[in-house]
Nucleic acid binder design. Structure first.
Lengths: 208, 208
DNA sequence: TCTCGATTTGACCGTTCGGTAAAACAAACG
DNA sequence: CGTTTGTTTTACCGAACGGTCAAATCGAGA
């Protein structure tokens, strides 16, 4: 993890190929369902050669998850307490949807890990993730109490952004089967915008 | 599938135990990741005895998916074109959330199948499911054009209900890790209600 | 009680799994 | 050129996989 070795060109290429092949395999079959042979073939290497770069199947999986978690929470980190409330939340949702569009395999890898009971990242969920969410939930609650956005449960508001955006990556097959030729993401972007504007915009003159 | 055999008590009990064990295994590890030994142990049977009741691993998986798809689409079928628009949609969302609460394993089984690329139920998705969704989307569009609910994309509206409700079953581990001791479903129920009321209620006097 | 079908078990089979050992090969460098 | 380091392959291992088979056991009815 912190070896200062310079990493030759071949090492860089092969390690990247293995991680990409592993991402394909793990994201569609889960950790237990994916095989080293499958990953090796996707990476264009023999199995022993693959194990020359990573000591075990676990090591590949762990490397993928570690690299993923870094970037996965970035959009939430970027939610700025000093920005415009509605704009900040919408921007977060749009960034998250863009990640589903641009990195669907990473999203499915994460989904598989959670479905399996989060054996690897369970500690991260109840540790750093929970802290981050609590912190941002406090920000949201502040905005609500100041009347800048409508009051609702901040945690579930965050969950709803996760659920909606990741759905378009994780259930991509289903979404496309239902929609046919239509590109899901254009419509999704508009709908999500409209949906969250509706819940967020403070009631100026309450009807009824 | 259509044998008229009366099914002895032992058969009924063992088949049920196998299906329950298979549901546990497949819903957390996926088809490829689950093993017959695992299912056999969960069912309290030896592996050969398990294979006396089901001819193969595939057969167990297929039986589970078939039994699931029947009930899985029921709530959407129940959406009544002649009912009150907002009430119908909210009722659908609540029924769907209740299924996530009461049958989380089934939800995760479905999620695993989709994540794997829907190798078994792909045809159902682009066939019967798509037809059903298109039919209900037409109903929704009718309500929108009549001004009974606010205009938005009907397909994505349905997707958003799926995404939000299934999230609480499929990502249960994550949700509970973040929330701590709090029961997720009570808050989820309130939030979903508020969220969809916001997008659905027609604007009487448009502000701005 | 005996019998016959339903059920269960133990032993086993071929394949695939994750992983290892050592030798062969390639490439950089003096 | 030779040597040394980095890379790849061939051959292989024990365990776990899905599944089979025949024998043993059980259980309900005559």
């Amino acid at each position: 993890m912190n070896e200062a070795q310079p990493l030759t060109r071949i090492q860089a290429r092969n390690r990247a190929a293995i991680l990409s092949g592993g991402l394909d395999a793990f994201s569609s079959a889960g950790f237990r369902g994916a095989t080293l042979d499958q990953i090796a073939e996707a990476a264009g290497l023999s199995k022993p050669n693959l194990l020359y770069y990573f000591p075990s199947k676990d090591a590949i999986y762990t490397a993928l998850l570690e690299g993923l978690l870094e970037t996965w929470l970035d959009p939430l980190h970027a939610l700025d307490a000093d920005g415009d409330p509605v704009a900040e939340i919408l921007a977060y949702a749009h960034r998250k949807l863009a990640m589903s569009r641009d990195f669907p395999r990473e999203s499915r890898l994460f989904a598989n890990e959670i479905l399996a009971g989060a054996p690897q990242i369970g500690a991260v969920l109840s540790g750093p993730l929970r802290s981050l969410v609590d912190e941002k939930a406090t920000v949201l609650r502040g905005w609500m109490e100041a009347g800048q956005i409508r009051a609702s449960d901040p945690h579930h508001l965050i969950f709803s952004i996760w659920a909606l955006t990741q759905h378009y990556a994780d259930f991509d097959v289903q979404v496309r089967a239902v929609l046919g030729e239509t590109d899901p993401f254009a419509g999704a972007d508009r709908f999500i915008d409209q949906l969250f504007r509706s819940v967020l915009e403070p009631v100026q003159d309450r009807p009824l």
